[in-house]
């Protein structure tokens, strides 16, 4: 890490949103670059090599998902998507195209900053030695090396598939993983049209790991989109 302030590229056509994003991000110690259109954003991403990108899905010139796709051809920079409310399909398309997370408009700045930090941290670990050997979230402890799980010190027995699912979520802690992604990674490409597999296993995991499965604290549902492992 250099002492320089991390660069965040904001691709957003709405000037008022750019304005308050710039002010808030600047105050939080980021250096902010701005682009008003998808094409301009792609050029600036190539020139300035930002540490993270905040991308509005509704741009005047390019479809936001198309921008993600073109960025992912050459870059693994974390991308946080700003999406309009209640358009689950758009969120899923963006995430499947390679976005790291999304925030729904209207959003509070704090929410965006939290997501941004998670994405930056995740990018940092991925760049380095790979996944951490163990993950701790409150009473829940996941030892990825020994494949051992414990809650409040008590070991919990998981089936191999349950373990694979939990490990996949924990490795991307804080990030939304789409149903499609999880089904493909854990069960294989033949299972992407069988979302009930995923839902049943998530329910089983919650029963084993959460104090109250109806009010989960770690294994959170993003209804209509996917699941997120909550580290905090």
């Amino acid at each position: 890490m250099t002492s320089e302030r991390p660069v965040v590229l904001v691709i957003e056509d709405e000037p008022q949103i750019r304005k308050f994003l710039r002010a808030s991000l600047d105050a939080q110690g980021f250096s902010v670059e701005q682009a008003e259109s998808g094409e301009q954003g792609l050029v600036m991403a190539a020139n300035r090599r930002p540490e993270a990108i905040v991308l509005d899905l509704g741009l005047p010139d390019l479809d936001g998902v198309e921008v993600i796709r073109r960025l992912r051809e050459w870059s693994r920079v974390p991308i946080i998507v700003l999406s309009a409310r209640a358009q689950e399909d758009d969120k899923i398309r963006a995430l499947d195209a390679g976005a790291d997370d999304y925030v729904v408009k209207p959003f509070a700045v704090g929410e965006l900053l939290a997501r941004l930090r998670v994405a930056l941290r995740h990018a940092a670990t991925a760049d380095g030695t790979g996944a951490p050997a163990s993950i701790e979230a409150g009473e829940l402890k996941i030892d990825l090396g020994a494949r051992r799980i414990s809650v409040s010190g008590k070991e919990v027995h998981l089936t191999p598939t349950e373990y694979r699912l939990l490990a996949e979520l924990a490795k991307h802690a804080g990030k939304v993983l789409t149903q499609r992604y999880l089904l493909k990674e854990v069960w294989g490409p033949g299972y992407v049209e069988r979302p009930h597999y995923l839902r049943i296993y998530m329910a089983n995991l919650r029963r084993k790991l959460e104090a109250d499965p109806a009010q989960p604290r770690r294994l959170l549902t993003e209804t209509g989109v996917g699941y997120r492992f909550n580290l905090e």
């Binding site: 009930h196 839902r199 919650r206 993003e222």
Partner: peptide, 15 residues
Amino acid sequence: ADWHPVEEVVGSALQ
């Protein structure tokens, strides 16, 4: 409509 565990929808609403 699709199949969901019933506690999941309650959980996400509370969340």
